[in-house]
Every structure is written in C-alpha cells, then in structure tokens.
C-alpha cells in the first residue's frame, strides 16, 4: 500500500499506521479513507494529497 503526502503541510499518511485518533485503523489504504477524511495536521481534504 502506498504512502501519501499532504501537499499543504508535509504530513505523510502511512497505511500501516492509519490515523487512529480520527477513527482510521492501521492497515487502511489511502484509497479506502472516507471522502471527508482530512489531514490530521492541517485539515485540508483528501484531494490535496499526492502519492509519495
């Protein structure tokens, strides 16, 4: 599963870790994140992410 980087702040979404604080369990592929998932650091939307 590929990592994705937030082009607004540089946070990297790592599927192996997920985003537990926001309800995303480890092992969730970026593509499977809900459409309204936002960057946990700077709060921009999924469309601002780019494959690392």
């Amino acid at each position: 599963m590929e990592k994705f980087i937030c082009t607004n702040c540089g946070y990297v979404y790592d599927p192996a870790q997920g985003d537990p604080e926001n309800g995303i369990p480890p092992g969730t592929a970026f593509e499977d994140l809900p459409e309204d998932w936002i960057c946990p650091v700077c709060y921009v939307g999924k469309d601002q992410f780019d494959p690392l």
Binding site: N22, I24, P34, E35, W37
Partner: peptide, 11 residues
C-alpha cells in the same frame, strides 16, 4: 453525492 462517513475516533 458526497460520501459522508461517520467515523468515530478509536481513542
């Protein structure tokens, strides 16, 4: 249609 999900924080 926006896919709205009600995700709950795990912690």
């Amino acid at each position: 249609k926006e896919k709205r999900s009600e995700s709950k924080p795990l912690m």
